[in-house]
Design a protein around this nucleic acid. Structure first.
Lengths: 227, 227
DNA sequence: TAGATTGTTAATCGATTAACAATC
DNA sequence: TAGATTGTTAATCGATTAACAATC
């Protein structure tokens, strides 16, 4: 299988000691769990933790510790018996397995409170995403500086997406503006839309929409508390 | 986490009973999927959609349509052959199954950009959550009005949590403040902490932490785009 | 060494899916 | 009726877990 990544982004094809199987696609479950481990590991690293056991990872992720060891051992022997896993090295191993070890440029839409919160946090930067452009349709906001970014007008969308090789767009706009924007983004070639509005977006099949819904996550958590 | 049903396997007839069966706990997977259906259904309802087919739900949730019908038929015959499911009625059925059909009070911590974005949106209200109190430690923000709320000082935390019977706290505070706050919340009797910071929180076993991590969700989506 | 934790096995259980009769 | 979509079956596949030898 050949896939074209690149056009500026660092090559993901840095093979490590033969553990990678470039033709094998992870199952949905494995990819989801690996992502979850990565989340906790990134936090742990930030707090200066050097090693972590499968049991600790289990406590934080609510995934069974045996399964964690099983998931990881499928890709190599990353742990040390009696000690655990090295946090730093496990982070980079998992990022290699998920093939997302490089830097990815993202565009942010909406310069309201949510957009500003995202632009000034490092939640994306910690995982290799770089917010390279921020947009709004309000002329009053265009030109203003938010963190390291200058707000641009939506009309520049297509040009910037192409110039900066942007694959991911984050939508922090009102529901009423979301569908129109999604259409423009799909047209410009964006492949992943991270939707913070509660609009139900219609997109062409090659585009993936991920809608954030904290309230639903809460309902899920609440179910297990209530029962 | 691991849950074993005693006295043999639950019969299908028992599950089909429809109304609440106290004692029968949904599996993690079923509860997660039902939550997901609920998210899409809520959006669909907001857009005025009256019926929806399992195939449409599948398109939006990325869950196989057969599985959706299977999940739902375990609790009753909610659909109409040749037509689909009534959006409005399916929403309330799922909320009944998840036993989260009531109103739930939540407290919001942090009156920065993120906190303000949450307080002025209706993402929680749409799912039966009501933000009844908002807190900050900055005396300069205490007393100011954000949406329908007046910002209170953290020192009022315990009293308000008890008075208003608050089970869920949403943390939109800097990482550095998160652990201290989590300790106070656990002490005050809050059971679910929805953490927007990237701190790795230590809490007593009766408290559940859910950490939001959009970047990790993006990595997961990106994996399937890249492969 | 002694204690801790990984890597792996084997058994079981639940999830997933195609297919299609039932029926709106 | 004709077309659409549910509800259900049956087969397969992947997830889950306890247990423990290996080994740091």
């Amino acid at each position: 299988m050949s896939y074209t990544v690149g056009r500026g982004s660092p090559s993901l094809a840095e093979e490590i000691a033969g553990d990678d199987k470039p033709g094998e696609k992870l199952s949905l479950g494995v990819a989801a769990r690996l992502s979850r481990y990565l989340q906790v590991l990134t936090q742990a690293r930030k707090m200066g933790k050097e090693t972590i056991s499968s049991q600790e990872l289990a406590d934080y992720t609510h995934v069974n510790s045996t399964q964690i060891r099983r998931d990881l051992s499928g890709f190599g022997k990353f742990g040390k018996r009696g000690v655990g896993y090295n946090v730093e090295s496990l982070v980079s191993q998992i990022r290699k397995i998920l093939r997302t070890a490089g830097q990815h440029n993202i565009a942010l839409f909406g310069a309201g409170h949510l957009g500003t919160a995202i632009a000034t946090s490092d939640i994306f930067a910690d995982h290799g995403f770089r917010v390279v452009a921020m947009f709004d349709i309000d002329e009053g906001k265009v030109g203003s500086e938010i963190g390291p970014l200058t707000v641009r007008h939506n009309s520049e969308l297509k040009r910037v997406v192409e110039d900066q090789d942007i694959v991911v767009a984050v939508l922090a706009v009102p529901s009423s503006a979301a569908q129109t924007l999604a259409d423009e983004l799909a047209d410009a070639g964006v492949k992943i839309i991270f939707n913070y509005s509660d609009a139900l977006l219609q997109v062409p099949p090659e585009v993936t929409v991920h809608t954030s819904s904290p309230a639903v996550d809460l309902l899920y958590a609440l179910y297990f508390y209530l029962t």
